[in-house]
Amino acid sequence: MSKLTHLNEAGEANMVDVSDKNVTTREARAQVSVYMNAAAFVSLQAGQNKKGDVIATARIAGIQAAKKTSELIPLCHPLMLKKVQVDFDIDKQMHAVHIKTYCKVADQTGVEMEALTAASVAALTIYDMCKAVDKHMRIEGLQVVAKSGGKAGDWEIDPAQTK
């Protein structure tokens, strides 16, 4: 069994020392989907949500969340993000908003948590803004779908596995 990296010799929580790792360009992509009823979807799509522009607000929330990841997730390293992108695909057939995030950094550790945090908070923002119309929305499928840079190498999930 491999050694757990976030525990010290006494078994206590510990931030990993990355000071000996090389600074490299690291990128990560994540995604998540928010499913809602027809009334909430029509309101969102028409820009008639009483709380304002749902997509614009969720985009800003996701970007801000990525920048705050180390304050939200214990033992995450603070990163000087170089790029955070939050995109939305509106799925009329499924009454869904599919959120895709991208984060980029030049650092000694990966940026997957920032991409996941951006996706999560963007989804939660949509939920918050639309919950008055649909109290039964679902947030599903949060996952990292691609990463590059660092010792572990590059990888991307087959799009068929993300459905």
Rank of each mutant, 00 (worst) to 15 (best):
M1K: 13
K3Q: 14
K3C: 06
K3L: 15
L4H: 11
L4A: 13
T5S: 15
H6F: 14
A10W: 14
N14P: 00
M15C: 11
V16L: 15
D17N: 15
D17C: 12
N22G: 10
V23S: 07
T24R: 05
T25C: 08
R26P: 05
E27S: 14
R29E: 14
R29P: 01
A30Q: 03
A30C: 09
Q31H: 12
Q31K: 15
Q31D: 04
V32W: 04
S33M: 08
Y35Q: 09
N37C: 13
A38E: 15
A40T: 02
A40L: 09
V42R: 15
V42T: 12
S43I: 12
L44T: 02
Q45N: 15
G47A: 01
Q48M: 12
K50F: 06
G52L: 08
V54W: 00
I55M: 08
A56Y: 07
A56C: 08
T57L: 08
T57P: 01
R59E: 11
I60S: 05
G62L: 00
I63N: 01
I63A: 00
A65V: 03
A65K: 04
K68Y: 09
S70N: 11
S70T: 08
E71H: 10
L72Q: 09
I73G: 02
I73W: 05
P74A: 06
L75E: 08
C76T: 05
C76Q: 01
H77Q: 09
P78Y: 04
L79E: 06
M80A: 12
K83S: 05
K83I: 02
D87K: 03
D87Q: 11
D87G: 00
D87T: 10
D89F: 11
K92A: 15
Q93P: 02
A96N: 08
I99L: 04
K100F: 11
K100V: 11
K100N: 10
T101C: 10
Y102W: 07
Y102L: 04
Y102A: 06
V105P: 01
T109F: 07
G110K: 06
G110V: 00
V111N: 03
V111R: 03
V111T: 14
E112M: 08
M113K: 12
E114R: 07
E114K: 11
L116F: 09
A118H: 02
A119E: 01
V121A: 05
L124Q: 12
L124R: 04
T125D: 02
I126D: 03
I126L: 03
Y127T: 00
D128G: 04
M129S: 04
C130A: 06
A132M: 10
D134N: 09
D134T: 05
H136K: 13
H136G: 14
M137S: 05
M137P: 06
I139M: 11
E140R: 13
A146D: 07
A146N: 09
A146R: 10
A146L: 00
K147H: 05
S148F: 06
G153R: 01
D154S: 13
D154I: 12
W155R: 03
D158Q: 02
P159C: 06
A160F: 08
A160T: 14
Q161N: 14
K163L: 13
K163Y: 09
